[in-house]
Design a protein around this nucleic acid. Structure first.
Length: 446
DNA sequence: TTTTGAGTTGTTCGA
DNA sequence: GTCGAACAACTCAAA
């Protein structure tokens, strides 16, 4: 009897999962496995753990409907996976790969002990497959996107074969509080269904954090409770809103391709000349940023939403990231780490790529002189101040536009809010901070 | 082979 | 109030 292990990592679904399809079609028996790796688990935020545990329980329930169970084992995969293969008589392990240096090292170690097949169900196109005419990795998004959209998806195993599924509950799913969002494929379907009501207006509304009309599918794509090909198929490109949304999926692939080709960019600027930027050591500024106490309401609203919800609207991510890097001149790696830790959708390749974009150090980066003005951004994209009001209740009675720059407001507009007591005074002057940042970047490039 | 045009997300300044 | 220019430098593809 042939037996395969399907080792789930961040592909916590059965449908549209090439590793699952491959194993169930080509072996007589399948052992579904998740390894709780302390190197990841011990560092994860509470909400991230709760979400992962919820996903695992959901996956286990799906497997139970097929008369099997998810084996959940804690420890080092390089020991656990070959040992489980030995004890179950499995001769093959099937997975979906990931592009981070950590994941690639881990998989290399495991592959030393057993036959490992790697699919790429977490991306539309496998990493490294979309290349320029010269065979180079794309460093500009638009040509990447053109090529990405024109490439036929590589065929991969689909559906579910008839293999029997091992029934051994192992050590069980870690006991965690209720997950912060509805977990599992069911949760992904719920979010996709909800988003389908907004997708046609996506081009017009996507930048409005006050409207809450984005998909939040980044969380599902991170954990693989839905795959990007499934999302792409469902949404299609029939309207400008749909095309704009599918284009966002290409960004995930773009940054994954980049990390695959240049893994060192996980903590090094893609453009080496930016190594010379002299970042500022500013523990107080960094702490104020993390806590949402910078005195800039849009930044603070976003940073508080991140801590409370494990999520932040994309427009606000850019503004908050720009504030740390440009206004405080703090090294982007500090911000990247904080986001990655708290975001339920925290994906290394996308997070690093986007932080490098903001910092101007990355591929197709924002020019360094493009500095977001947190007040202008607030007035433009949160016109009534509703988003700020939701997350910064101290300012709940302040009307727009005063709410976007309370330090400029007349005292009667502040409705009794005392700056520096009820809500922080701005920790930097944006105009001065902007000049300082431009100077620091110019110095680095000289 | 060389040249040329275009390229996610912005702001400020001066006319 | 609106508009265009300036703010760099490089990648990619088409001509």
């Amino acid at each position: 009897m042939t037996t395969s292990i399907v080792w789930f990592r961040r592909d916590l679904r059965l449908s549209g999962n090439p590793a699952w399809a491959d194993a169930t079609a080509n072996a007589e028996a399948v052992v579904p496995l998740f390894v709780v790796d302390p190197r990841l688990w011990d560092r994860a935020s509470g909400p991230r753990r709760a979400l992962l545990a919820g996903h695992l329980r959901a996956l286990d329930r799906q497997l139970a409907e097929r008369s099997g169970r998810l084996h959940v084992l804690g420890g080092d995969p390089a020991e656990i996976v070959p040992a489980l293969a030995e004890s179950t008589g499995a001769d093959r392990v099937v997975v979906n790969g990931d592009v981070t240096p950590f994941a690639r090292n881990r998989d290399r170690e495991v592959a030393g002990g057993i036959d490992l097949t790697v699919h790429h169900g977490g991306l539309v196109h496998p990493p490294g497959s979309v290349r320029t005419a010269d065979g180079d990795v794309y460093r500009v998004f638009t040509p990447f996107h053109r090529s990405w959209a024109a490439t036929d998806p590589e065929p991969w195993p689909d559906g579910e074969g008839g293999a029997s599924i091992h029934d051994d509950p192992g050590t069980g799913v870690p006991d965690e509080p209720e997950p912060p969002v509805v977990p599992g494929e069911e949760g992904a379907e719920l979010r996709l269904g909800r988003f389908e009501r907004h997708v046609d207006a996506y081009s017009e509304e996507r930048d409005r954090p006050d409207l809450d009309v984005t998909s939040r599918l980044s969380i599902d794509l991170k954990w693989g409770t839905i795959g990007p090909r499934q999302v792409k198929e469902r949404i299609g490109t029939a309207t400008p809103g749909r095309a704009a949304f599918v284009r966002q999926l290409a960004w995930r692939d773009f940054y994954a391709h980049l990390m695959w080709d240049a893994p060192e960019t996980i903590d090094r600027p893609l453009k080496p000349k930016y190594e010379a930027v002299r970042w500022v050591e500013d523990p107080d500024g960094l702490a104020a940023w993390r806590e949402g106490a910078t005195g800039y309401p849009l930044v603070d609203a976003g940073m508080r939403q991140l801590r409370r919800e494990g999520w932040m609207h994309n427009r606000v991510r850019m503004v908050a990231a720009s504030f740390l890097v440009k206004d405080l001149l703090v090294d982007w790696r500090h911000g990247e780490r904080h986001f990655r830790h708290h975001l339920l959708d925290g994906d290394v390749a996308s997070n690093v790529g986007n932080w490098q974009w903001v910092a101007g150090t990355g591929a197709d980066a924002a020019p360094y002189f493009r500095v977001f003005n947190p007040v202008t951004q607030g007035r433009k994209f949160d016109p009534d101040g509703d988003y700020i009001r939701r997350w910064v209740p101290e300012l709940a009675d302040v009307r727009s536009p005063a709410i976007h720059a309370p330090w400029e407001a007349a005292s009667e507009e502040l409705r009794g809010v005392v700056l520096g007591e009820d809500y922080p005074a701005p920790i930097v002057d944006h105009a001065e901070a902007r000049e300082r940042a431009l100077g620091a970047y110019r110095d680095a490039l000289d």
